[in-house]
Design a protein around this nucleic acid. Structure first.
Lengths: 264, 264
DNA sequence: ACCACAGGTTCAAATAATGAACCGATTTAA
DNA sequence: TTAAATCGGTTCATTATTTGAACCTGTGGT
């Protein structure tokens, strides 16, 4: 592993829950020597990728990312184009629509939109972390990911976020087969109680699955009829997004779904 | 210079004008050996900081920045807090308000807001690059930056963006002295024709100037009266933002400005 | 007074970065 | 239709950078 990778890997320890990390802690987390960590952080800081905050000289992510993200988004408006589709989807379903991208072994939420017409919604936040085995989005991604990746994810500890989280890897593998045939993943209360969500995979130009689009509703509002509608609208939106992002589905992804009745 | 810095410096060659860069070109631009450039790009790509686009295998900024920017913004909502103030300022002045941060020897626009009530406005874009010597924001930053930094900026070629750009470094130094006493920088058509803009510096927790807030109006709409109003509102907003961002003005920044008449 | 842990620094030893030359494939110029 | 130039990418002996144990210094707790 190159020096640059080590430096960049430090950035991955910062999260919503842990926005501030001290030198020693980061050294421990990364397994790198304290002197090495210090030097790498210094280089990252020179570039505005981390910054030190007064009190305990702790580190946090720097302002540089705002600039680079704006530049990236200007060149490749992924977030913008996704947002437009999500707004439509949220309005059509009157529920929360979101899109999350694969990053390592978790999903990170890129954008979301709330529907209208109800008093309550499934809540979402930008950069929220979703686990692969416990969310519909995660299952959708796993279903279209390489076998070794799936094996790696399922072999690590499958944390139970709720009482309904499926932690049996064989049961999950069975679900993945279903998802591959329908093109839609479903999860009920696996990540948060009372959330019923549908998800469809999104692919890049190499036909690799890079994330998933999802619609999440309170369990109490889900009916076979609504599920049917979401199924149709969601798979259409996800396919649309794949195209907009310059990607295309892999050969094992059946694009010829009858919108009236679902596949098979 | 460490290896990590070399890798990160590659990111700085991507811009709005040049979003795609090939391996050889990037090697030339950075002065690094092609093999080195290739390896560094590979490491950056592993982390999603750059990605290769199909055709000519050219590189562009990667999707990772969206995630990190969202995380940073969640932890430290600089953009969000600035936007609120800019909206207010734009409404109060009925003109374009924006904030730009210092990055290297240029300013990068973080956020902006348009006023209401007129048919035309000064146009802005996210991540737009402003030069230090030719904009009011740049002058505001220079006025409160270390002497050696100012010297470095003024010694490099001062490009004339318009016929009205001031390129005489002595004349600019004289302006800086004025700006230090009033706390507001003014530039007329120095960057874009027909733009009359006011700017005020913003400081971080080390009392270092990190950027500037500005109000830009068409020259034709600028009157002594409007300038007076902008002067007051802008310096108040900028001071407010400095506080919100956890910073404070340096000792040589006079915070006791009479809002009726200006200082002195 | 003491210990434990924090951030940060030092310098010989070990490792990883470097770059000239090379490859095969396109593109351009003659 | 060649021939030269340029592209992205790779190789490997040489070289320079990274590395980490030990060491400061300061702080908060007992």
């Amino acid at each position: 592993m190159g020096t640059t990778s080590k430096a960049l890997s430090l950035l991955d320890f910062f999260s919503r829950k842990q926005p501030l990390i001290g030198l020693s802690a980061l050294s421990r987390l990364s397994g790198l020597n304290k002197a090495t960590t210090h030097r790498l952080l210094g280089e990252l800081a020179d570039f505005g990728m981390v910054e030190q905050v007064g009190a305990g000289r702790q580190y946090r992510l720097g302002p540089q990312f705002l600039r680079l993200a704006a530049l990236r988004e200007h060149n490749v408006p992924m977030r913008e184009s996704a947002s437009v589709l999500l707004e439509t989807l949220a309005n059509q379903t009157c529920e929360t629509a979101h899109i999350s991208l694969l990053h390592g072994q978790t999903l990170s939420t890129l954008s979301f939109a709330y529907g209208a017409g109800h008093g309550t919604f499934v809540h979402m936040e930008d950069a929220e972390i979703l686990s692969l085995h416990a969310t519909s989005s995660g299952l959708a991604v796993l279903a279209f990911s390489p076998a070794d990746f799936v094996a790696s994810v399922l072999s690590h500890g499958l944390t139970a976020h709720t009482s309904q989280t499926q932690t049996n890897s064989e049961a999950i593998r069975a679900q993945l087969a279903d998802i591959r045939s329908t093109g839609i993943a479903i999860s009920v209360g696996g990540f948060e109680e009372d959330v019923y969500s549908h998800a469809a995979p999104v692919f890049n130009a190499n036909a690799t699955c890079i994330g998933a689009m999802a619609v999440a509703a309170p369990v109490s509002r889900m009916t076979p009829d609504l599920s049917q509608r979401i199924h149709g609208l969601l798979s259409e939106s996800a396919r649309h997004l794949t195209r907009q992002w310059g990607g295309f589905p892999p050969d094992n992804f059946n694009t010829k779904i009858d919108p009236q009745r679902g596949p098979k």
